[in-house]
Design a protein around this nucleic acid. Structure first.
Length: 740
DNA sequence: GGGCCCGCAGGG
DNA sequence: CCCTGCGGGCCC
């Protein structure tokens, strides 16, 4: 028998004793509900009765966690589970990754802990449920702008109270009957808690839960290719425990499978297998790197005729400047200048910093005597001593050029030496005479030679910005999502929770509608500005009864007309937002210097860079979209004002994640049929276009080739799409084929 | 050996 | 999201 309280009439819902004697009644200190103590499965000791919280409020078994908002901790749990089940990881490594996942960055620093505390404090100061005095669990917000736990609120309502416990304002029937959880608050509170509990409670629970989950071991055989062969395969398990932005050799400690590390001369069948051992991660691309951070590795596979291989040193060509239309991945012919951007910029950073760059050679490089006969081979680390541009051998366009010189403690696979490299004089490069944009390292290199210890990091290697890959695409995608969130400061993430879905900025004077959507006061009111709540109708000479106008919430079909009569600012939320903004502003400095963009700040090398940037001919793409992305607006239907009196049953309870898309589509169709109604006012001009885009995207998802083509035709005809036709052709070609 | 094709991974 | 990319299978 579950524990049940006394009902509204004071009748025990367990034993049905009407009006039990007062001594047998226990009042919950949290929700004030009376309980018949003899019927409790675990009645409190007499001494504790004064402090007693009922099973509903104290988190007993009936108090199962509510389904979380989309993108919530279920992602997190899945990601943690993946770590736990990864047999390739030592317990220590697992712990480290869990921590990374939960805390945001590798070893949790004091700062982070402080941040968590601060935020919880801020939250606690601004929010507390009047009933339980705690941070609201499943928070609901009254139209008068006060926040409570759902449970506490329901208890209150259940006791036939129809006024706000805080301000005594009347609570509308709808809110009383169907309170909505304010998911913006849920997110904010949860994040603050996670950031606080990263090292203790949360991870401990997760750890236990996952330890017991003995899913079959994926071992090291995972090959996720869906079709035979590797032409279009997924890469499979990653065996080494380095993040994809790890520089330098792969040491034994990151090779839990063999405990040898990746040794010079190791060979693999192909690029996918090479990737699994971390020597060079990209599946197709020749350069692994990030434009503001550096390049970790390159592949020599004969993709660029300008390459020139001399074993201990070689000349490498940058990427780009080629026409990849027609759904190609590569193309021998240059058709435009390469620039020091993207991966080419990454290589240049490695040059400036003197980072070690891993090099793999592929059998596909036919013109080099150092290339392996078959497969892909790891040849150790090199440094990029100089880079520049020149007109490529094809004669028309500029290419980026890089001088790589070997600097590895292990001998190269082709030498009979037993020792690795020693610093050697730079080779004389003829083409340097007509080099453009020459860039050389000015400061001392990060990776350098020490007479006693050989090649080593003289300056600490750059701190990784990425989680370690598992090779399982789903897991990695989840981890990426989680860490991406984690990369924002906690305060920023909290602020993100408080975005107004009309103006997309952090809310000013937030209003919480009875349907639990949040907007800036001015945005929401502005959206209905020209509408009065009643509409005088006259037909012929006589005046008809005034008809009530329905005003739809901008985020859902709920009529919020009554709420709009006298909307109350959610003061608590407003105060919180202000504290957070202050905190985020303080954090600002720290954020910017930890994001890895300290790339090319070596003394004095900036002059060069600036020059380069200026000189680059600007064939800037005519982007029709700004980065505030159509997708943000796409689900923005704007408030729809209509005059129909209809009772639409809303079932917008907390939806499970994954239902999101359907919900959106549902909403869309609903609106489009409703638009027949008399007055339709859209908040945003141009939302029609956004909608159009959304439709296009959906079609694309469905792979509707005919529609896509019609669309493309329309684009051309209307001239709306300013992209060059070649760029589209790769995409449309792909679509056409994949549907058949 | 060359051309075509396209799933996938990563950068921004 | 959209774009890029020194692959790999397959057909000619």
């Amino acid at each position: 028998m579950p524990d049940l309280p006394c009902d509204g009439d004071g009748v025990c819902m367990v034993c049905s004793a009407a009006a039990p004697p007062e001594v047998d009644l226990l009042r919950c200190t949290t929700c004030a509900t009376p309980w018949h103590s003899p019927c409790l499965s675990k009645p409190p000791a007499l001494a504790d009765a004064a402090q007693w919280s009922c099973p509903d409020c104290s988190g007993g078994p009936t108090h199962a966690p509510a389904p979380l908002a989309p993108g919530g901790s279920s992602d997190l749990v899945a990601a943690i589970r993946a770590i736990e089940t990864d047999a390739a990881l030592s317990d220590q490594e697992k712990a480290r990754r869990r921590q990374e996942l939960l805390g945001g960055a590798a070893p949790a620093t004091e700062d982070e802990e402080d941040e968590g505390d601060d935020l919880l404090e801020i939250l606690g100061k601004n929010f507390s449920c009047v009933f339980c005095m705690k941070l609201p669990d499943r928070p609901v917000t009254t139209p008068c702008g006060h926040n409570f736990c759902l449970k506490c609120f329901e208890k209150w309502i259940h006791n036939r109270k129809r006024t706000c416990a805080k301000c005594r304002a009347e609570i509308p029937k709808k809110m009383a009957e169907q309170p909505r959880i304010n998911s913006a608050l849920v997110g904010a509170i949860r994040m603050a808690k996670i950031s606080k509990n990263a090292n203790s409670a949360v991870s401990a629970t997760a750890y236990h839960y996952l330890r017991n989950d003995d899913r079959p071991d994926k071992a090291f055989t995972t090959e996720r290719a869906k079709r035979a062969g590797k032409a279009n395969a997924s890469s499979g398990q990653i065996f080494v425990t380095i993040p994809p932005d790890h520089f330098g050799p792969i040491p034994a400690k990151n090779d839990p499978k063999r405990n040898t590390g990746v040794l010079v001369g190791e060979k693999w069948e192909d690029r996918l297998e090479c990737r699994q051992w971390g020597a060079h991660f990209p599946h197709v691309a020749g350069i692994a790197g990030q434009s503001k951070y550096g390049a970790q590795s390159v592949a020599l596979s004969g993709g660029y005729v300008d390459d020139e291989d001399h074993g201990e040193w070689f000349l490498y060509t940058g990427s780009g400047g080629r026409d990849l239309s027609g759904n190609k991945r590569t193309n021998k012919d240059q058709s435009s200048d390469q620039k020091f951007e993207k991966l080419n910029a990454a290589l240049r950073i490695s040059c400036l910093k003197g980072y070690p760059v891993r090099v793999v050679r592929s059998h596909k490089e036919k013109r080099s005597s150092y290339a392996p006969e078959d497969g892909v081979r790891y040849d150790g680390v090199y440094r990029i001593e100089k880079c520049w541009r020149k007109i490529g051998v094809q004669g028309k366009f500029k290419v980026c050029r890089y001088l790589f010189v070997r600097c590895d403690n292990e001998p190269a696979p082709w030498t009979s030496d037993v020792c690795g490299d020693r610093p050697r004089p730079l080779p004389k490069i003829k083409e340097l005479n007509d080099a453009i944009d020459l860039t050389e390292r000015k400061g001392s290199p990060s990776w350098d030679f020490d007479e006693k210890e050989g090649w080593k990091w003289m300056k600490p290697p750059p701190i990784s910005n990425k989680p370690i890959l598992s090779g399982d695409p789903e897991t990695d995608a989840q981890i990426r999502r989680v860490t991406k969130r984690a990369q924002l400061s906690v305060a920023e993430r909290l602020l993100k929770e408080f975005g107004c879905s009309i103006c997309r900025n952090v809310m000013k004077e937030p209003l919480t509608t009875p349907c639990a959507h949040n907007f800036c006061k001015t945005c929401l009111l502005g959206a209905y500005e020209s509408q009065s709540s009643m509409r005088e109708r006259s037909r012929g000479g006589r005046t008809l009864r005034a008809q009530k106008i329905v005003k739809k919430c901008p985020s859902c079909p709920t009529d919020i007309c009554d709420f709009l009569q006298n909307p109350q600012i959610n003061r608590e939320m407003m105060d919180l937002i202000e504290s957070l903004q202050k905190k985020a502003a303080e954090e600002g400095d720290i954020q910017t210097c930890s994001d890895g963009s300290n790339g090319a700040q070596e003394s004095g090398d900036d002059g060069d860079n600036a020059d380069l940037e200026k000189e680059e001919d600007d064939s800037s793409p005519n982007e029709e979209d700004n980065n505030d992305a159509g997708c943000l607006h796409a689900d923005d239907d704007g408030p729809v004002v209509k005059i129909v009196v209809e009772s639409k049953e809303e079932d917008l309870q907390l939806k499970k994640k994954g239902d999101d898309k359907e919900e959106k589509d549902e909403k869309k169709t609903m609106v489009s049929t409703d638009v027949v109604d008399i007055a339709v006012e859209e908040v945003k001009q141009g939302s029609g276009k956004a909608g159009n885009k959304e439709v296009k995207q959906r079609k694309k998802r469905k792979g509707n080739a005919a529609d896509a083509e019609a669309e493309a035709a329309m684009d051309t005809a209307v001239g709306e799409d300013a992209r060059p036709a070649v760029k589209r052709s790769r995409k449309s070609g792909g679509e056409g084929l994949c549907t058949l």
